[in-house]
Design a protein around this nucleic acid. Structure first.
Lengths: 205, 205
DNA sequence: GTCTATACAGTGATAGAC
DNA sequence: GTCTATCACTGTATAGAC
């Protein structure tokens, strides 16, 4: 298994170039020529560092999947202020999810998971599974604090992630929208939190 | 623009073969040779009926998108029995959404929408937009009947579709699950409807 | 390790006979 | 319209010089 850490000089250049090209055009439409050119090396040098196109692709996707979701955390949130914390969480989640790189990564994995099943597993653990666990942990704390009415934290975390992802994620995946401005994110986050609180909140109704 | 209706003989054979190949392997990994072989004709015959690979691809995707979602309807449902009707609706929605062909169609459009933006538009209108409208119409009827507490039917329809699609759709797209049996569908439908009713129901709480 | 040059397979697309 | 045969091109991968 390859990752970006520990690679220096041309090997790192190749990995960076490959990432850019794959994210831009997918797997099939990218040539080793293009990667070599982008990295400023000859094609033979690419093959000196990586066994082939498939291995290089796997290295890029694994490294991105694991690196990309590392910053997502819910441990700093206040479990008493459920509405405020969930809104912050939703906005953070959407910012991560709708970023051009994340959308491109989604696209390429969904497209190629049939051919490279291992990449689906790597991405799923690093992404959805990890974020779900973060959300569930917060929901348990909020339930303990009495600000949410939740029995199954795992299930509720899925619901929250689902509601937050919502339609806007689909719109991005299908190229119907590219707007990731704060206003759009805030609106989507608010809608998701509103519905979630209607279902699982303890205040008001 | 081409569609399946009106095509006969070899032209129809080619379209069927192309659909099968594209759904199986995506756009880039399919060769015109393979389509010709699958259809039992020569490659030249393929080019006699379609201008090229891109045009053939567009014909396949457009035709599938428009045909696939035609059977989805919410007009037969009873607006008084919100819980029962929504469960039926969710199950019907999931059955459509998780079928192997629908997943394959999702995959390929998400993968290629950057290269073929028009296909995203065609699919979106035929799929999500159409189903959303069906759902919204039912929600309006249920709200009028007093069985649901909904102000914005469009928005609530998005929420319902989102909740129903939920995590299981993601799991299928990322190859984490292939189970589309009735038990799995029922469980997913029930979870979605439970949460939706907690947020928008008029009975109980 | 790194380069240039190239082998070799496979691609989309077409010409010409029927 | 349909076929066989072929074109021009691009792709992955490698040999050999340095």
């Amino acid at each position: 298994m390859h990752d970006a850490r520990g690679r220096t000089g041309k090997a790192a250049d190749i990995l960076v170039a490959a990432r850019r090209e794959f994210l831009k055009s997918g797997f099939g439409a990218v040539s080793m020529d293009a990667i070599a050119r982008e990295a400023g090396v000859s094609k033979a040098t690419v093959y000196a560092h990586f066994d082939g196109k498939e291995e290089l692709f796997g290295a890029v996707i694994s490294e991105m999947s694991e690196r990309y979701f590392g910053g997502f955390s819910a441990s700093e949130l206040d479990p008493v202020d459920a509405a405020g914390s969930l809104t912050t969480l939703a906005r953070q989640f959407l910012e991560l999810l709708l970023s051009p790189d994340a959308i491109a990564l989604n696209r390429i994995i969904i497209a190629e998971v049939t051919r490279f099943p291992a990449l689906g597993e790597v991405f799923w653990q690093a992404g959805p599974e990890r974020t779900r666990a973060q959300i569930a942990t917060f929901l348990r704390r909020a339930a303990a604090a009495g600000s949410l009415d939740i029995a199954d934290a795992q299930g509720a975390a899925d619901q929250f992630a689902t509601l937050t992802r919502g339609e806007i994620h689909q719109r991005h995946l299908f190229g119907r929208e590219t707007n990731t401005g704060p206003a759009a994110l805030n609106a989507a986050a608010r809608t998701a939190v509103d519905t979630f609180l209607r279902a699982f909140g303890t205040r008001g109704k």
